[in-house]
Simulated scan of single mutants.
Amino acid sequence: MEENKDLRDEEILEEGNTVEENTEATENEEVEEIIEEYSETDDLSMIRKLKDENKKLSNELDALKDRLLRLTAEYDNYRKRTAKEKEGIYTDACTDVLKEVLPVADNLERALAVDGNVEDIKKGVEMTIKGFLNALEKLGVEEIDTTNGFDPNVHQAISVVEDANLNTNDVAQVYQKGYKKGEKVIRYSMVTVAK
């Protein structure tokens, strides 16, 4: 009897183990199904999110491309406009200078056409030079001063002389007058400097 009881106990244990194993197997299958369903759902939502993100980035890229094209076109227009303005400024500046200088040329032509003595011609040339200097003054051009001694920033020394009557670096002689407009030197004065 005891043997029968032991056999029954073993059978019951085996049945319990089998039930447990079956329960575990069933639970594992259910978990796997849930994971599989979740993965499919998760993959779909991930795909949707990626598609939305891709569309968003594509729109952003298109907007940046459009902006770049517009900026490039604006820069090209700006470059052309400034080149045209620069050319216009140069033309206007030349016109302003020529308006002031042309009367001097007219006076020189008249002086050549006049018959007269040397004194009359000399007087006409002096008046023409005065008109020319007035034109330079209107344009803001002034003669470079040589009375304050040699200045290498505005004078060009072409020779050096020893002269007891002059101090060192005094200008002994001016060969060609220099001119400047504001601080910009147009032509340096060519001078001889005392030693």
Rank of each mutant, 00 (worst) to 15 (best):
K184N: 11
D115F: 06
V31G: 01
E109I: 05
E137Q: 06
E10L: 14
T147D: 03
E162I: 00
N167R: 05
D96I: 15
L133G: 02
T91Q: 14
D42N: 11
Y78A: 15
K184F: 09
V193K: 00
Y38H: 10
L61K: 03
E183A: 11
D62P: 03
N77M: 13
S189R: 01
L102W: 06
D66F: 07
E53C: 02
L64E: 15
N77I: 15
R48G: 08
L68W: 09
E137C: 04
I12F: 09
L71H: 11
P152A: 06
A157L: 02
L69H: 10
L166M: 01
L133H: 05
V174Y: 01
V171W: 00
D52G: 08
I34D: 09
A194K: 00
E10S: 08
D92W: 09
E137G: 05
K138W: 02
H155T: 03
D170W: 00
E74D: 11
I144C: 07
E33V: 07
A113F: 05
G131V: 02
K184H: 09
Y188Q: 12
K130N: 09
L102Q: 11
I47D: 14
E119V: 10
A113L: 08
Y78T: 14
A172W: 00
Y90D: 15
T95M: 07
L98D: 12
G116N: 01
V104Q: 00
V31I: 11
D170S: 06
I89D: 14
V193R: 01
T95C: 11
L50C: 04
K180R: 13
K86I: 12
E60V: 05
T128V: 03
N107M: 10
N134W: 02
Y90S: 15
K180D: 10
L71I: 14
E87M: 13
R48E: 15
C94T: 13
K184G: 05
T95P: 01
N165W: 00
Y38M: 10
E29H: 06
V185T: 06
K84N: 14
K84R: 11
V118A: 09
K5C: 02
D170I: 01
L98W: 09
D163C: 01
N28R: 09
D115C: 07
T168L: 00
S45M: 13
I47T: 12
N107H: 06
E109W: 03
V19H: 08
I186M: 11
G140N: 03
I34F: 07
E21V: 14
V171D: 00
I47Y: 07
S189G: 04
N4K: 07
V185N: 02
K84F: 14
D66Y: 08
Y179W: 15
V101I: 14
K181W: 06
D6W: 08
Y175C: 07
K122S: 12
E37H: 02
V141L: 03
S58E: 12
V31A: 08
E32S: 09
T18R: 13
E37I: 03
N134I: 03
G178I: 05
T72G: 12
E14S: 10
G182Y: 03
I144K: 02
A111F: 04
A157S: 05
G124E: 09
R8A: 14
Y179L: 13
S39I: 10
L112C: 13
R48N: 13
T192E: 06
